[in-house]
Design a protein around this nucleic acid. Sequence first.
DNA 1: CCTTGACCTGGAGCGCACTCCAGGTTGGAG
DNA 2: CTCCAACCTGGAGTGCGCTCCAGGTCAAGG
Lengths: 139, 139
Amino acid sequence: MTGYAPAEAARRSGFSLDTLRYYEKIGLLADVGRTAGGQRVFTDDDLSWLVLFRCLRDTGMPIAQMCRYAELAREGEHTVDERRELLKQHAAQVEEQMLLLSRQYEHLREKIRFYERLPGPTPETEQPTATPSGPAVSR
Amino acid sequence: MTGYAPAEAARRSGFSLDTLRYYEKIGLLADVGRTAGGQRVFTDDDLSWLVLFRCLRDTGMPIAQMCRYAELAREGEHTVDERRELLKQHAAQVEEQMLLLSRQYEHLREKIRFYERLPGPTPETEQPTATPSGPAVSR
DNA sequence: CCTTGACCTGGAGCGCACTCCAGGTTGGAG
DNA sequence: CTCCAACCTGGAGTGCGCTCCAGGTCAAGG
């Protein structure tokens, strides 16, 4: 019921005004209300969509796919299966992403440990990944 | 000692040929060897740099920062402190990133659970985030 | 020697997700 | 009623990280 002015919606969603307008322009966020004079009024429903978009965006979903999802949702109840599948597929990709990220994070930590084992600028050779910890070549 | 042809280096590093050339062009990868005729020859050292770049890239470090790191490394041993700090700062950002990612992943899972609780296309209203699970507004 | 596939260069182009701008309108406070 | 900050529109511009291209060169097998 409560309506939010653009600035307030931006503040609450964490998206910029321009991004909100952009999302509407490309049809990601549809049917945003307007005042008589044409200024946008965001509802709680719009806000919860934005929360979802933030979640999907933060997890790396491309905008095109978010559009697809939103479109399906607008099409009605008979698309729930497809929507669920879309989200499940995305979740699987996020899992992969998390795995890769934590693996690479470990490499990074190892490299930092290497730097911490040499207290000050020592003489001698410098290799980038030559933390003596295994074969340098990955895959 | 072993030298790798461009295609082999690409295969081993997982970067495309174009990307390897690009990295050299912008000075990220420096002093790549050449044959008499001008064709690149990658060393194991180059390869280990590429492994590092892959790690940093996969964890979201912008190229400019990788360049900074590489430049420092080329400057010599007196930059180890700065290099360590650079990596530590990045690691901190990666931690944040992982936290955000897993939090948003949880939201995603919750949404999927919501979809799984409704077995087939049910009638009635459809709300995007209206998993009855708390305030919709996240900030 | 000839062929052919891998390689070279400089530079243009691309896809994504915004972000910025000019020039005009709206609407609530005083 | 006046003011001015917040808003509107369409469209151009940006930053990043590649990716592609044309037109030429290299080098190993036959």
